[in-house]
Design a binder for these strands. Structure first.
Length: 106
DNA sequence: CTACTGACTCAAT
DNA sequence: GATTGAGCCAGTA
């Protein structure tokens, strides 16, 4: 498991309940600004790890692009709504309001 | 070894 | 706005 992967997973674990962040922000904070695709890939391998709240990671427009990788396509939406994050048409309306920006390394 | 594929993003058009 | 092309890099065939 690469350092990048470990950093990404560590950051995902820190996303507060009821907040979301994006693949791009995670990639940047983990030290590889253009590796947004890798973030989704990493989450896919960890999707059975209950310690990783992967449903709190959306793309930069607030779309639930990862929903097809959950057990059922509506699970991601249900988990978010359970935390108070509204989802409409596979997207979080006014999603900037819920955005959590991961801490950047020095 | 090469080729293709993504839970993505950005800049240019 | 929409579309296109490129960068990213681990995994798979």
């Amino acid at each position: 498991m690469s350092d990048f992967e470990k950093r990404v997973l560590d950051l995902v674990r820190r996303i507060p309940r009821g907040r979301v962040t994006t693949y791009g922000h995670l990639a940047r904070a983990a030290g590889s600004p253009s590796a947004a695709r890798m973030v989704g890939y990493i989450l896919n391998r960890q999707k059975f790890n209950p310690a990783i709240p992967a449903h709190r990671v959306v793309n930069r427009r607030g779309e639930l692009t990862g929903r097809w990788h959950f057990e059922t396509p509506d699970l991601m939406r249900r988990l978010l709504e359970n935390e108070g994050v509204p989802v409409q048409d596979n997207r979080i309306p006014d999603f900037m309001q819920y955005l959590w920006i991961p801490p950047m390394p020095e």
